[in-house]
Amino acid sequence: MKRSRMTYLILSILVMILGLLSRRIDNLPQIISAYSGDILWSLMIFLLIAFIFNKGSSIFIISMAIIFSYSVEISQLYHAPWIDGIRGTTLGALVLGYGFLWSDLVCYTIGVMIGAGLDLLIMRYIRKRDRI
């Protein structure tokens, strides 16, 4: 079944805004401020992949989101002047991050699983709506 690109684009933008806000709000509980950005980042990646591959299976989208997210994290083990220069910019830091953390892999998995659950709910709603 085909996903609505507009729905996934709007959700991606909302998640981006929430992710940026999670870094700006000072009085959040420590656990939320420490991990929400990474969870929301991978959720955004899931939603963007679902947007691009709107006819793809859920397993394909989950796999691509995990592979992409983990690849970005693993790339943080590589430090060359050119890539560290990119990481030194605001956009580069948001996309590529700074340093490898095992906890980020856990956050990415959680974010993708939230995306998969959200995708399942959206697809069930569409199927139910189309039957009526």
Rank of each mutant, 00 (worst) to 15 (best):
T90S: 13
K2C: 10
R23N: 00
S63T: 06
S103A: 12
L11V: 00
I114N: 10
I52N: 01
W102D: 13
R3Y: 06
I31M: 04
G56S: 04
I49P: 01
L105M: 08
V112I: 04
R87W: 03
I110K: 11
G37M: 03
L43I: 02
T90W: 13
Y35W: 02
S4W: 01
I13T: 02
A65P: 02
W102L: 10
S4G: 08
R23E: 00
H79W: 08
L118Q: 12
L101W: 14
A93C: 12
S71L: 13
L91F: 09
Y125N: 05
Y8I: 03
S4K: 07
R131D: 05
M123Y: 12
L48D: 00
D26H: 15
T89G: 10
V106D: 11
F51N: 01
I83F: 14
I17E: 00
G117I: 00
L20I: 05
I86W: 15
D84K: 08
M113L: 13
K2N: 13
I61W: 04
S103R: 15
M6K: 15
I31C: 04
F46N: 00
I32V: 13
D26W: 11
S58H: 03
L96Y: 10
T7S: 07
L40Y: 03
I114E: 02
R129S: 05
Y108G: 05
I62C: 06
I13G: 01
I114H: 10
I39F: 01
S12N: 01
M1N: 08
F51K: 06
Y108K: 09
P29V: 10
Y108H: 09
Y125D: 03
I10E: 02
W41I: 02
G37N: 04
I86V: 09
S4E: 12
R3N: 08
